[in-house]
Design a protein around this nucleic acid. Structure first.
Lengths: 342, 342
DNA sequence: TTGTAAGCGTTATCAA
DNA sequence: TTGATAACGCTTACAA
């Protein structure tokens, strides 16, 4: 009952087969007589056999495990949802997941990866921004990045640029006279930087007057609120009459802006139009459901696994031909026109 | 570069020691001369040795891995935060985590646990409510439950009862004439059921008139909103003048109630006082920062690991004496008096 | 303090 | 279709 110590040897003895045949029963059942399959099957039940994957991994080299590196604080809607989606792929792909959360420190993250490698994970999904993709590419296993710098690794991202174009165009169609972008001042290597670029390009294309409010990335709600509060006061002071369209880099921050306005006016005045990005739950669950551009998190997660699993399979072949070309899959975002736009 | 295949044998040859000594260098360094430690150290670097935990686990039986079973949808603040905290214990305890998300199906969850056992995880942390603790207790490894039914396993929970007493008392101190409880109609085995009990008991103790609104558990924001909307309309209709105190079972639902009121009034009228439970981020990040009772998620996570790790250590001893007594640790919650109460 | 040798429970390579 | 045997890379008595 307590400690199960039934091994292939025991099953072999019990059934008068060899260990090899027992192994075949699991890995290559077709190569075993139906009759003998049945015998083994009952033996497994009789002896209450439990698999030992560790032995299997040591012998075969395949762990059926994937490592995930989450970013510093994944205590936010987007990353939680993504992790959830990644874990949910288990029934489809059979890969188990070992999960680490980085803390922004590259040394530590390196150690995490060494651990993962020591456990013989077959691939890595990296959401943290800490390590340059060049270093990630140097490890001996396939790596897929999600919404991160990806010059040297495969990656999946949402279409930040086209999505941000859609958002900006919606504000323009809403007849906003002046457009604003509020967001973090991100390095150009991070995919969401393109939201900013798309905003500027679209404004230029439609020749709409616009202004950028960029701030440094902060981690707490309070710090974010203080920053966005300043931005909003500045906007109100300088444009007291015009119809204004504000594109906020992500829903978390859009939610903060909305709250600031609601606290002041008790409602969202018609002259302010707001759109966020990500389709985070909070965008639907705000007092005023907020317009946003939807990342298809489920599709992103599934695509990341598709790429990783394919790459893993490729390397298992006799003459592996690891895709020389890096794959940078872009997932089309979806515009959600809700109550903060017309 | 590509495939590292350096083993203890290689190091042993290179240093003219035996594999045993190499093993000792890692697991019992004191038993190796400082001089020889240095020799081995350089050899490791020269040959670029990488650990292989799988071989170690097979030989030693210890995986340094813990399995986590998350509930159906952990796409909610509370469980995301908890998972984050659990994963963050790695630097302190050294245990790695394999994570599964259940989908409410007991068969599937059983399979997940078999997988975990096949990987020789040394312990289990269970947040999902799917499997009865009796079955969980039947597995050969230590199990700690978090905020779940725990009759046959160790567990950590927040003090739902005392916390809910604090919340109810605050509403009473706010001179609310009539008190309401809005929440899910949970089975008595689930710890948060006690929030409801505490509410009723406290109302009785202070002889305050009160009413319960219990609904079935639903998963979407929209369904929740419809239910709470009905509750609120009922409350307003029947008590148009009195000062009312509403204790909502958790912050997610409290946030929904607050939004309903804000949409209607543009502010939170003084005659409505609201308090939630959990200290979810959303409670601080609502338009009106919402009063709540704080679960100390970090403490809960750390305590769960303390218990599990102690139990694992106990079983490694020669004459294990697994605590006959089940540990049910209760973590004191903290009252956060914010803007939705006086 | 160090070494020898027998595991740990599978898979993989031959051969039958 | 099946079996014997050698890996896989480390730990752990038991010796020295």
């Amino acid at each position: 009952m307590a400690e199960n110590k039934v091994t292939f040897s025991d099953i072999a003895k019990y059934t008068c087969f060899s260990k090899t045949t027992i192994s075949r029963y699991f890995n290559n059942p077709e190569s075993v007589t139906l009759e003998n399959q049945a015998k083994i099957e009952t033996a497994l039940k009789e002896l209450n056999y439990k698999k030992n994957k560790i032995a299997k991994i040591l012998a075969s080299g395949h762990s059926e495990c994937i490592g995930i590196i989450m970013p510093t604080l994944f205590y936010d809607d987007y990353h939680s949802a993504m992790l959830n989606q990644l874990l949910s792929t288990y029934p489809d792909y059979g890969y188990k997941f070992m999960v680490f959360t980085g803390h922004g420190d590259i040394q530590t993250e390196r150690k995490y990866i060494q651990e993962l490698l020591a456990y013989k994970v077959e691939g890595l999904i990296v959401l943290s921004h800490t390590m340059p993709s060049e270093e990630l590419a140097g490890y001996s296993i396939p790596v897929v990045g999600i919404e991160r710098e990806d010059r040297h690794i495969h990656s999946v991202r949402s279409g930040n640029y086209p999505g941000a174009c859609l958002a900006t165009e919606l504000l323009i169609q809403n007849h906003c006279e002046k457009l604003f972008f509020i967001g973090r001042d991100l390095p150009a290597t991070i995919p969401s930087h393109r939201r900013m670029e798309a905003f500027e390009d679209t404004c230029d294309r439609y020749q709409v007057s616009h202004k950028m409010y960029l701030h440094k990335a902060v981690n707490s709600y309070e710090e974010n609120r203080d920053i966005i509060m300043k931005n909003f006061l500045d906007i109100e002071k300088n444009y007291p009459k015009e119809k204004l369209g504000i594109f906020v880099e992500n829903d978390t921050q859009a939610h903060i802006l909305l709250n600031i306005i609601l606290r002041k006016y008790g409602k969202l005045p018609k002259r302010f139009r707001i759109i966020g990005f990500d389709d985070s739950p909070i965008s639907r669950e705000s007092v005023i459901p907020t317009s946003t551009v939807g990342q298809q998190i489920d599709v992103i997660a599934k695509t990341a696994l598709d790429i990783l699993v394919a790459e893993i399979a490729e390397r298992k072949k006799r003459r592996p031909n690891p895709s020389a070309e890096l794959i940078h899959q872009i997932i089309t975002p979806i515009l959600h026109n809700r109550e903060t736009t017309d």
